[in-house]
Simulated assay, not measured.
Amino acid sequence: MKTLSFLVSRLGKAVLVVLGVVIVNFMLIRMAPGDPAAVLAGESGSSDPAYVEQLRQQFGLDQPVYVQLATYLKGIVQLDLGYSYRERLPVLDLILDRLPATLLLMACAFVFAITLGVLFGIVASRSRYQGKRPWLDSVLMSGALLIYATPQFWLALLAIIYFSLHLGWLPPFGMETVAAGFTGWARVKDIAAHLVLPTLSLGCFFMAVYARLTRASMLEVLGMDFIKTARAKGVPVGEIIRHHALRNALLPVVTFAGIQLGQMAGGAVLTETVFGWPGIGRLMFDALIQRDYQLLLGVFLVTSTMVVVFNLLTDLVYRFIDPRIQDA
């Protein structure tokens, strides 16, 4: 019952957060300079004011802002995110077509970052705690700091130049080989090869953060009294690390990982643009350049919902790792 009450409470707050984000995004988009109807008319080779006004009426841009907002909110309730006047397709269809690619990239980057980041943090803290090979701690943390300080787009470009152009090991752009006609495992391998560089580019920054955070949290836990008591009782260091220190040290890492999942969705915009990855990040970039406001609002809504869902899942994982929270 406590878990159910927790879920209901969090879902209610999540709905309010998403609603607030939708309203703020809608108002900011409407306050942006430029008229999408005039842009669309100019690209079609017509500057006739009558044609521009016709486009404004067609897309509801001639209505007062509060009427447009009410219409948009009503459409969201009905799972209608509007119509893209540039792509000539419903916004929801465009997003659903691109969303799997973004989720695949984010999942791979997150697993890569959290796995290697926590592993490097454990290795670094253990070497510092035992006093054996202290140079390993310095090397790992210096490397993490270097990766953290490197701009993401520069790292992506370096990866393309070295691994694709110089060595020729991996494809530089896209999600799969164009017109290759692969099926089955051949297509899976082709997508996996295209996925390596975007995953490394997006995940390395977060891996560095998790490594440093895990190391700091592990060293803090290893200095506590219950760890000293376990050492005094003769418990091996490996068992202390795995069964006593790691679970407590993971609490801040899990909290931070949940927050950064939302940042990873934002970072995917740059990564998808550099690597030509056909996800919603690239879709949002194209919509911004083309002033496709309905598509922009739809992408903002989906990414905001993703961030809220990720934070809800983080709360659930946090309660699983630390059962004391369930009684709080």
Rank of each mutant, 00 (worst) to 15 (best):
L4A: 13
S5F: 08
L7R: 03
V8E: 09
S9L: 09
L11Y: 06
V15T: 14
V17A: 13
V24K: 09
F26E: 05
L28Y: 11
G34Q: 10
D35Q: 02
P36W: 02
A37P: 02
A38T: 00
G45S: 05
P49N: 05
Q54C: 02
F59Q: 06
P64W: 05
T71Q: 12
D80I: 09
G82H: 04
S84N: 05
R88Y: 07
D93E: 14
D93M: 12
L96T: 11
L99N: 06
L103K: 10
M106F: 06
V111C: 12
T115N: 11
L116Q: 13
G117L: 01
L119R: 02
L119S: 01
V123C: 13
Y129W: 13
G131H: 09
W135M: 09
L136V: 15
S138N: 10
S138I: 13
S138W: 06
V139K: 05
S142H: 06
Y148K: 12
A149W: 09
T150Y: 05
Q152M: 12
L157N: 11
I160W: 04
S164D: 08
G168F: 09
W169K: 11
W169I: 10
P171Q: 14
F173G: 00
F173P: 04
F173L: 15
G174N: 06
M175H: 03
E176V: 15
A179P: 02
T183K: 11
G184E: 12
W185D: 11
R187A: 11
L195R: 02
M207K: 01
L213H: 03
T214I: 13
T214G: 08
R215W: 05
E220N: 12
D225L: 07
I227H: 04
G238P: 07
E239R: 15
A245F: 00
L246R: 06
N248W: 12
P252G: 08
V254M: 08
F256I: 13
F256A: 08
A257K: 01
I259D: 08
L261D: 03
L261P: 01
G262D: 09
Q263S: 15
G266Q: 08
G266E: 06
A268S: 05
A268R: 00
L270N: 01
L270R: 04
E272Y: 05
E272L: 07
F275R: 00
G276D: 10
P278F: 07
I280W: 03
Y293D: 02
Q294A: 15
L301Q: 03
T305H: 04
N311Y: 06
L313N: 09
L316P: 00
L316A: 07
V317L: 14
R319P: 00
R319H: 08
R319A: 15
D322H: 10
Q326A: 15
Q326V: 07
D327Y: 14
